Simulated assay, not measured.
Amino acid sequence: MKKILVTGSNGQLGSELKLLSENYSHFEWVFTDRTEITLDKLSVLENQLELIKPDIIINCAAYTAVDKAESEKELADVINHLAVSVLASWSAKNNAKLIHVSTDYVFNGTSSIALNENAPTDPINVYGETKLNGEKICLQQNPEAIIIRTSWVYSCFGNNFVKTMSRLMQERDSLNVVNDQIGSPTYAADLAKAIMVIITHSDWYPGIYNFSNEGEISWYEFALAIKEIGGYTCEVSGIPSSSYPTPAKRPAYSLLDKSKIKQIYHVDVPEYKESLKKMMSL
């Protein structure tokens, strides 16, 4: 029986994989959080991997506090970059498969067309920079690894845009949401399913893949969809990013092209509103 190690199992994607694992009982699952797999303590990490001895690693753990990363660069780099190096080199040495989750924030946001896996990377914040360094070291240490770039992740678990908007729309009469950052949301349950399609496929095709739901929207349009599905009466207005300054800059356009994952793994990529309805009805 193959053993799958999931890091960051209390996060959005890790929690969705935990739910989904019930349908895959022919695998032995090991779900770890930051107390069991310490990505910020590199000297301990290799020993922990030796104890677990996984056949497949799904690395969902990351430092994702985008604004905080600007002032905690060292910690973000250890978790998003240096720890990935340990996971990649261990998996290469032990013939284990590695799926590492990355982000659309590796791009600078100046594109006007959906970005494919070969589009030039050029992060504009510390979080994006550490994630890109993680990608590079991952493929360097283990060329057989698979990296999945995703964007705007939400689910029933953890803190995310959908849950925050739903709460605020019930508490307030009006809300302002940025309307000049374009991309597509990702329902973590859909990404978890896509990962399982890859793991259970008869062939393993290493490299970088994009995954997010279908659609090209701004955060403002995303908020309007949440308002409509939730039946909220809160007034939602679009504002430019310049009216809502944050410590970290965000890419203005980071829509991901999903052609590759659809062609190679025949992964189903649902339309964003369908997935949003699913999550909000749970």
Rank of each mutant, 00 (worst) to 15 (best):
A62T: 04
I37Y: 02
G134Q: 03
P120F: 12
A188S: 15
H201G: 13
I182G: 04
E50F: 03
G158S: 03
C138Q: 03
Y265M: 11
V106F: 05
N125G: 10
T7P: 05
H26P: 00
A65R: 10
F27V: 09
K93E: 14
L175M: 13
S112W: 00
K249D: 08
L255H: 12
Q141P: 00
T233S: 14
V84H: 05
K73F: 08
G231E: 03
W29F: 13
L42K: 08
I264Q: 14
S43T: 13
C60K: 02
L49H: 02
L49Y: 01
N118W: 00
L17C: 06
Q12H: 07
A83T: 05
E72S: 11
S241M: 01
E16T: 10
D77G: 07
S218E: 02
A145S: 13
D104H: 07
E271M: 13
N118M: 11
S184Q: 12
Q48A: 11
W152R: 08
E50C: 08
E129F: 06
A188G: 15
E271R: 12
V86D: 08
P251G: 08
V30F: 07
K97L: 13
E46Q: 14
S9I: 02
H26A: 14
S237Y: 02
A188C: 11
P143G: 08
T32W: 00
P247M: 08
D268V: 13
M196G: 13
R167H: 10
E144V: 01
T233Y: 00
I99N: 12
K53N: 11
A223P: 04
Y265V: 09
T32D: 02
E235I: 10
E46K: 15
C234H: 03
I147N: 00
G230L: 04
L276C: 11
I4R: 04
S184H: 05
L75T: 09
S254D: 02
C138K: 01
P185H: 05
N10I: 06
K2H: 12
I52A: 02
I4Q: 04
I137C: 04
Y105D: 06
S243R: 01
D67C: 07
V44Y: 08
N160G: 05
N213G: 11
F107Y: 15
L276R: 10
A119D: 09
W219G: 06
W219N: 09
G11P: 01
I195P: 03
D104G: 14
E72R: 07
S243Q: 09
E271K: 13
M280P: 09
Y232A: 07
S43I: 08
D77I: 00
D55W: 03
L51K: 14
E171K: 15
L39V: 10
I52S: 01
L98S: 12
D257R: 12
L42T: 05
V269F: 11
T103K: 09
P247W: 03
G134Y: 05
V236H: 01
I195L: 15
E74I: 09
G109C: 08
E235F: 06
A65S: 12
I182R: 07
V162Q: 02
N159E: 04
I148C: 07
F211N: 07
N80Y: 04
F157D: 02
P270L: 13
V153T: 11
L19R: 09
Y187M: 06
W90T: 10
N108C: 14
V78A: 06
L139C: 04
G109M: 05
T200R: 10
I182N: 04
S241C: 03
Q12N: 12
